[in-house]
Nucleic acid binder design. Structure first.
Lengths: 339, 339
DNA sequence: TTGTAAGCGTTATCAA
DNA sequence: TTGATAACGCTTACAA
């Protein structure tokens, strides 16, 4: 690997001069600059990022932490991050946690050691653990998808979870549903709680009292959605509509419904977060709240990259992006006598 | 950030001793080791990876290059890579090229500068450009999905593209199809060519002569699949079955078929690579060749991580993994009089 | 078993 | 405008 010294030696100039040309810093004689640039190209010089980072104590790398890379939502967010980052000469380290606390903690430590310029995370932690685990790095940390409560000062890129859940549940109510059950995310995740909140608000506004058993928490995996739906179907008062907190649990629920010989939306209506049909070829076009995934990624990356506003080293910014609501074809009027 | 020097100072030992404990190298007095370990924990020491890399001139980072992060196949491969890498204390830098040559070249340069320990790439380049672009790094390079021809000495993790295409086309022939058209990938991609080869072989073995117009090359995007299928449907002899080189083009083709008021598989049969229904909720369960995506990632990572066999610094390994063939429900007998 | 010291390739400071 | 030189935090001979 050719280094500054090699270029310098060849041209009979000093290392610092070459460095200055490479970094486009300080004044350097136009003539020498030209010669240096030529040699740089000729010898195909590539700066050693590690040396550079050691010296400057920063790096042109962003770290991303997601619970499940095979979830298209997260893949898409990463795509947005990567695009924004690459545009600024940054690269992206991706950590997948498989929804486990341990791997998430490891990931944070890993990224800190790398001295990344920023961490973008869809944490599965609640406030307490976020504080403990994400308090350490001295780079910007940006949360998305599941974000900490307002108690914690951080950067967030999110949609309005309360409003979007209210919108989805409200749509079901509009169509005549009253027994709207919810397959929620794990307790302690603030965003999951907010969605529950929105759902509750919508019911309340319609004069419906949600019973305790109407909401069950899953783990965002398909299997839990299936299990919970099966449970719902055994109730003496099964739901006429079900709202799932993510795509995979919605898929599980839908399969349970089919397995019971029921139809969607004729027998049961279904709605979910992030479950919109991106292929256009799904059997069920699920009514969905769609987070603008690539934008979320891009904005999160921007937050890491953009220099903070004057005096605002500690200013936290909560960016609320617009969600979309896709009505799909999975919600219909409840059967007469069942609503 | 606490450094070796701090720990050393606190304990009154030398930096090297602390370093030795951290790296578990050389002999160190059990007693001192204990004290050091304690201090390490107490002060929450995190090694500065950049300094370490600068010194050792290696890094515990793998680089991955994919054409499209939002393609679940690539996301899944990355997941496999990440799991294997994390298990060895490595992290993964992901580069998305949006199928463009320029971004791929940039990505390679970027990864080289980072001194990554290995590059895993689903290149979109043909042999010539692979040679030019991937010849430079002095770390292992592992190709998957689209791999260079045997002309080039490299590591590859792949399925048997010829055989799998033959299998898919053969299945259609078995069901009675003769006019089997192909929506292929860009010319120059070796793996795409191999698949064409397999398709041709299957036809030939059945005594069918593939006409020139039977195969059209797309760009792996849905739109191209749609366009090509529309073209096929205007032919005086439209296909009774179509084979697409990837999931997105298959989706486009299917939509074109539906848009023409035709049914699958009643009017036209469809098969594809990497288009198996992972959700279990697609309208069309596409007959698919399934690459073992996570395994491909894991094996590729392993190739980067595992020390080479004695004397084999330049030995290239082509790992051929088993594919699966999912029959789905998108292939039926051609309508009488149409075969 | 431990310590000293050189040096990895850069950037940044200071003097020329 | 340039050049010499000292770091950055770590690993690793080599010496003690």
């Amino acid at each position: 690997m050719v280094k500054l010294k090699d270029i310098a030696a060849r041209l009979g100039v000093s290392v610092s001069t070459v460095s200055r040309v490479v970094n486009n810093k300080d004044r350097v004689d136009p003539e020498t600059r030209k010669r240096v640039l030529h040699a740089l190209r000729e010898m195909n010089y590539q700066p050693d990022e590690n040396a550079r980072r050691l010296k400057t104590n920063t790096s042109n790398v962003l770290g991303v932490i997601v619970p499940d890379l095979s979830n298209p939502f997260y893949a898409s967010v990463i795509k947005g991050i990567e695009r924004e980052a690459a545009g600024h000469g940054y690269s992206v380290i991706v950590c997948n946690t498989d929804e486990t606390r341990e791997r998430e903690r490891d990931a944070v430590a890993l990224l800190i050691r790398q001295k990344v310029a920023g961490i973008i995370t869809a944490t599965t932690f609640g406030d307490e653990e976020v504080r403990r685990c994400y308090g350490l790095p001295d780079c910007p940390v940006v949360f998305f998808d599941n974000i900490p409560s307002e108690q914690i000062e951080t950067h967030c890129v999110t949609i309005d979870n309360v409003r979007s859940a209210r919108e989805l549940a409200g749509y079901m109510i509009e169509r005549g549903h009253r027994r709207i059950y919810m397959i929620s995310g794990p307790r302690g995740e603030y965003s999951a709680d907010e969605r529950v909140h929105g759902w509750r608000e919508a019911l309340k506004a319609a004069g419906i009292t949600a019973r305790d058993g109407w909401i069950v928490r899953g783990d965002f995996r398909e299997e839990s959605g299936r299990r919970i739906m099966e449970d719902f179907l055994t109730r003496t008062q099964p739901p006429t509509a079900v709202l799932a907190a993510n795509n995979f649990m919605a898929y599980g629920a839908i399969k349970a419904i089919f397995a019971a010989g029921l139809s969607i939306p004729e027998d049961i209506s279904v709605g979910a977060f992030d479950a919109a049909d991106t292929t256009g070829l799904m059997r069920i076009d699920i009514a969905s709240i769609v987070q603008p995934s690539e934008d979320i990624g891009a904005v999160a990356a921007e937050l890491c990259l953009k220099p903070l506003p004057p005096g605002g080293a500690r200013i936290s910014r909560r960016m609320v992006l617009d969600h979309r609501f896709i009505k799909g074809h999975s919600v219909a009027q409840p059967r007469a006598g069942k609503g």
